[in-house]
Amino acid sequence: MGEPRYVVIADDLMGRIAAGRWAVGELLPTEPELAVEYGVSRETLRRALRRVELGGLISRHKGIGTRVERTTPFTRFTTKLGSIEELTQYGEAAVRHVLTVEPVTVDAALSAVTGLAEGSQQVCVTSLRRDPERPEGAVSWAKVYLRPEDAKAIASDLGENTRLISDLVEARTDRAVERVVQRVRAVRMPAEAAAHLGVEPGSPGLEFVRRYYDALGTLFEVAVSTHAGDHFVHETILSRR
């Protein structure tokens, strides 16, 4: 299997910048223009631009455009992850099965875990991820907290599919994921999660809390996913680039 399309586009854009197609300080074509040129969706194009931006070659400014900042990437260590999906190592085949969608008021305990403001109103999407290659059980159990307006915008898209909820929000609103902060910790498996994952309550597990921020620094989504510790490995590769 080849590289994801957005990775190929990002590499091509970086190559064109390095070759002087656009000078430092010059604006790239608009997102719609680039999407047409590469024959991809705006979502795929934005992922490619984020990858180029992480290398330090461009900066993006609302109302101005995408500006070239340098012709060669920063030299630094970075996690070698092709997409936000890979942060949790599901693989693209893991299908989401929504269990419940319900409004919640963030209490002190939930605020401490998620970073959401205590007393704020959220919509909680509880779901399982199942891998077709592992029919005997679920990969993870998760609760995703969304702003009510974002939850309403993606309500028709929450059927069984493999896309991240953050991807759905990007596709249906003007939000774009600018930054994801992930925290991983060892936990005792909650009873509700254990029942769905087929393990004993209180058995070892891993909890991933991912906080999604948009370009304005607004925390608009928090995903709390739990994995059984005896059949889950989280691997990070560090490479110099």
Rank of each mutant, 00 (worst) to 15 (best):
residue 62 K to W: 15
residue 160 E to R: 05
residue 128 L to S: 00
residue 235 E to W: 09
residue 185 R to A: 04
residue 122 Q to H: 14
residue 145 Y to A: 06
residue 60 R to I: 05
residue 30 T to W: 08
residue 84 I to D: 03
residue 93 A to W: 03
residue 69 E to N: 04
residue 65 G to F: 01
residue 54 L to I: 11
residue 224 V to L: 04
residue 104 V to I: 14
residue 225 S to Q: 02
residue 97 H to W: 05
residue 26 E to W: 07
residue 195 A to V: 11
residue 2 G to L: 09
residue 77 F to M: 13
residue 167 D to Q: 07
residue 153 A to E: 06
residue 183 R to A: 03
residue 69 E to S: 06
residue 101 V to F: 03
residue 121 Q to N: 11
residue 5 R to S: 13
residue 127 S to C: 05
residue 177 V to L: 14
residue 231 H to Q: 11
residue 40 V to G: 02
residue 96 R to L: 07
residue 183 R to E: 15
residue 68 V to E: 03
residue 3 E to W: 12
residue 216 L to H: 11
residue 203 S to H: 06
residue 132 P to K: 01
residue 229 G to R: 08
residue 221 E to K: 12
residue 73 P to R: 05
residue 6 Y to L: 07
residue 236 T to E: 15
residue 109 A to D: 14
residue 57 L to R: 03
residue 89 Q to M: 14
residue 72 T to K: 14
residue 144 V to D: 00
residue 99 L to M: 13
residue 42 R to I: 09
residue 36 V to P: 05
residue 71 T to V: 13
residue 216 L to V: 07
residue 238 L to C: 08
residue 78 T to A: 14
residue 208 F to Q: 02
residue 102 E to K: 14
residue 57 L to W: 00
residue 154 I to A: 02
residue 147 R to H: 12
residue 156 S to V: 15
residue 169 V to I: 15
residue 33 E to K: 15
residue 199 V to Y: 05
residue 56 G to V: 10
residue 47 R to E: 10
residue 214 D to K: 04
residue 53 E to H: 08
residue 183 R to F: 07
residue 241 R to G: 11
residue 227 H to W: 03
residue 146 L to N: 01
residue 49 L to K: 05
residue 110 L to C: 13
residue 40 V to T: 11
residue 172 R to N: 11
residue 13 L to N: 04
residue 73 P to T: 06
residue 102 E to I: 12
residue 3 E to P: 07
residue 71 T to C: 08
residue 164 L to K: 03
residue 237 I to R: 15
residue 189 M to I: 11
residue 30 T to I: 08
residue 230 D to L: 08
residue 201 P to I: 12
residue 140 S to Q: 01
residue 117 A to W: 05
residue 115 G to V: 13
residue 181 V to Q: 14
residue 110 L to W: 04
residue 172 R to T: 10
residue 29 P to D: 13
residue 72 T to R: 15
residue 219 L to P: 00
residue 150 D to W: 07
residue 40 V to K: 03
residue 152 K to Q: 14
residue 226 T to L: 08
residue 101 V to D: 02
residue 95 V to C: 02
residue 185 R to M: 06
residue 180 V to W: 00
residue 177 V to Q: 00
residue 84 I to C: 02
residue 235 E to T: 15
residue 138 A to S: 06
residue 176 A to C: 09
residue 89 Q to I: 04
residue 166 S to F: 10
residue 127 S to F: 04
residue 190 P to E: 12
residue 178 E to I: 08
residue 46 R to I: 06
residue 222 V to T: 10
residue 178 E to Y: 14
residue 25 G to H: 09
residue 42 R to V: 12
residue 215 A to H: 10
residue 225 S to C: 06
residue 133 E to V: 12
residue 21 R to C: 12
residue 137 G to V: 03
residue 8 V to Q: 12
residue 69 E to P: 00
residue 130 R to Y: 01
residue 107 D to R: 11
residue 119 G to M: 05
residue 21 R to N: 13
residue 178 E to P: 02
residue 219 L to G: 06
residue 136 E to T: 08
residue 67 R to G: 01
residue 215 A to C: 09
residue 153 A to H: 06
residue 210 R to I: 02
residue 133 E to L: 13
residue 83 S to E: 10
